[in-house]
Each structure stands twice: as C-alpha cells, then as structure tokens.
Design a binder for these strands. Structure first.
Lengths: 215, 215
DNA sequence: TTGACAACATACTGGGTAGTATGTTCATCA
DNA sequence: TGATGAACATACTACCCAGTATGTTGTCAA
C-alpha cells in the first residue's frame, strides 16, 4: 500500500471518530459522553480513540474545529460576491443555516464548547487550545458582523446596537441546531424552504425591507 | 417559635438551596454540578440538601419548576389585557425578556432541562415528573403561540409557519440567558432598553409593522 | 423534663469512567 | 526474513461523586 493511501486511511479513521464523537456529544452532552461510549458507537474500543486523541478534551476540540472548518467552507463561495452587502448577507446566511441543519451534531458540539468556555469549564493546560478555537469562532461571527454593518451603511438594514443585533441574528440562524429534526420523505427542497424561512426571520430582525418575490 | 414561622424558615431554606443550585447548574452544567458543590456554595453539607430533596434530579426539577413558576407570574398581569393581541404580545414579551435577565440562573436550568428531556437523559422513574415539567413549559409557550396567531388574524403580524415562527420568536426572546451580563453601573432603565431592543427584533421577525415611537 | 422530631452534619460505600500500561496484528522496508 | 512501527485491543488503576446510614443539636409539646 502506498504511503499516500495509508495516510488517507488514517485520516478517514480520524474522521470517523470525529463524526461518532459529534453524535455522542450532541445526544448526551460532554460529561455524559464516555470515551467507551464513543468507541462502542464505532464498534471499536478506547484504544483506537486514545491512539488518535490525547484526551477527551482533545477529542472534543477536534470536533469543534472540524465543525468550524465546515462553516468557513460553507460561506466561502459568497464572501467576496460583488454588489450590495445585504444580498451577500442573504447568501451567506442561507448557506449558514443549511450548514447548521446538515452538520447538526458538529454544530451542537461547537455550541457546547462556547458555553463551556464561557463558564471556564476547562483545565488550564487546554485553556490555550480552547481559546484559539473560540477566537476561530469569533472571527467567523465577525465576518457576518462586518457584512450587516456594511448593509446598514448602504441603507438596506436598520438597527441600533451592532453587538446585540449580531447576537440575536446568530441566535436565529443557529436555532435549527436545537429544533430541526428530519421529517419522513423530506427532500432537499423542503430543507431549503425551511432555511429560507429562518433567513427571512433574521432578515426582518435586521430591519431589512420586505421583498415581494419571497413568501 | 410559632409553627408558621418555622414553616416559613423551612421554605426559606429550600429557596436558598434552589437559588444556589440554579447558580451552580448555570455555571457548571448538570453533571459537572455536584451536590457537594451546591452545599459548599451554601456553606453547608450534603445532609442539608438531601433533607429537602430526594435526589439530584429532584433538586434539578425543583429549580426548573421554580423558574417556570416565576415566568407564569411575570406575564400574568398582561395575559387578559383587552385590545389588540399585538399590543398584548409586546407587554408579555417584554415581561418575559426582563424575566430572563432577572432570573438567568433559573432560566438556564430550564433550558438545560428541556435539552436533557429531548435527548432522553432521564431515568424512567423521574420520567413522569420530567414530562409534567415539560408540559408546564409547553403550555407557557402555547400562551404566546395563541397570541401571535390572534395578532396575525387581526392583521398586525405576518408569517407563514406558526410552529417555526414560535420557535424562532422564543429563541430571540430567550437569548439573553446566553449573552446577557450585567454591566457596571447598569440601571433598571438600561436593562429595560436592552429588553426593548430584543422585543423589537422579535417583533420584526413576526412581521410586525414598524412603530414610529420606538427606536 | 422528657420524649419526639425537624434540620441538619459526618462518615462510608459502590458504581462509573478518564487515563495508562501493556499486549497483538499486520504492513512495509532494509 | 526479520525488524520496526502504526493501529489498534485488552486489562488495570485511581478518582470522583451520588446516594445512604448514622450521628448531633435544638426546639416544641405535653
């Protein structure tokens, strides 16, 4: 077997662990999730996980980072769109909401990570790793922040306090991670309609003008 | 000492435990919170807590119920207001948001309780108690649901899907439990301005018309 | 003044789990 | 073809913590 393929297999194994861990973290929370539990979900044992991750916190950080990586990738195609910022915002917001639905276990883990960091539930040694992840996530938030400020300057949005507004906007855009559940026979189009409703709600909250071509 | 006073002292002791437990649950989450930790925060020991509550889950349920009790009490004065439903909604929503800020530790615990129930993180025996609390909370949500439906009928709100809209609305109204932090020198008026901004954002999300007398 | 009981504190036990130490297998490479 | 190391599995330990069992103190009622 070529070294390239071997390396790829290793990365696959890591990705499988991250995916299983994300699901476990979502379904049981951080401390209720045991390494044995994640291993069981994989049909493996602890050894496999501890071979790839130094600790439970390291595994958690891996899921967090993977989730944020996917978020950046999801909005990347729209960040540099020319034209009005409000239009750019709608594309980004829509991609973000769809992303929340598609990678819900990872996003729930990211959310938990932020909560844990805010209450300082990390050991000193992992503090720096965690702080970097939080910065990674804050930067992501600031991308949207800059866009809505620009859109306000261009007269398309209307709000007073930027910080609060950005918080409320993300609260709406992220909310599917809490209440979305796939319906039987649900198509891609159904999900997109759902996402559009969420985006429209956030759009209104930002003081965006009503558009005729949307329901 | 009169029996009345004794009983009152007991209730005081219970209330102190609930308050300390709410803070601990908020700061550390459910499983990271130890009974010893709550006792320590009270300057007491486990014995005191287990004298009033049968288990950790029972203590948690007590905090949950107390939080919801306070919520019902907060909106009670406005539920039967005559006039347009949209106006009634604004009063109720404002009272709700202020309540989220004032009793944040309890509300965070309620939130955690809902999450735990959704992922089934309860033992069978406590399942019925928990189910009743969830119903208590669902009923509270339905109060708002009925009001926004009425307001839509009266032409003041404009939205498509009631369930999603109610979810998104509560997401916005509840959000201060995640990002609110008291500022130095903050007055009651500052909090009310903050709450009004949140209510306005939710109002817009519901498709409410802009009002001139608000910023 | 003396039970009786409420309201705690103290001391102990058992189960679950993070982390570690040590095997085992198999592919690659010299 | 034997050495080497990656990629796991197995076995074990040490700790934390919920729950319990039992003591202690003060109050009230008779």
């Amino acid at each position: 077997m070529t070294p390239g393929v071997r390396e790829h297999m290793q990365e696959d194994s890591r990705a499988d662990i991250l995916s299983a861990a994300a699901t476990c973290f979502m379904e049981r929370g951080y401390s209720e999730t045991s390494i044995d539990g994640v291993a069981h979900a994989l049909g493996a044992t602890k050894g496999r996980i501890y071979h790839h991750f130094r600790s439970k916190a390291d595994l958690f950080a891996g899921v967090f980072r993977a989730g944020m990586d996917m978020n950046y990738a999801a909005i990347a195609p729209y960040r540099a769109l020319p034209g009005r910022a409000a239009v750019r915002w709608r594309r980004m917001a829509f991609a973000h909401v769809v992303q929340m639905i598609d990678t819900k276990p990872f996003q729930r883990t990211v959310w938990m990570g932020v909560e844990m960091h805010l209450r300082g539930a990390t050991t000193p040694e992992q503090r720096s790793v965690f702080a970097e992840l939080i910065r990674y996530r804050t930067d992501y938030g600031n991308i949207f922040r800059e866009v809505i400020v620009k859109a306000r300057e261009e007269g398309d949005f209307d709000f007073t306090d930027v910080s609060i507004t950005n918080q409320l906007m993300f609260m709406t855009l992220n909310s599917p991670i809490f209440w979305y559940a796939p319906r039987v026979g649900e198509t891609r189009a159904d999900i997109e309609i759902l996402a559009d409703r969420v985006v429209t709600c956030a759009w209104r909250g930002l003081g965006g003008k009503e558009e005729r071509n949307r329901q």
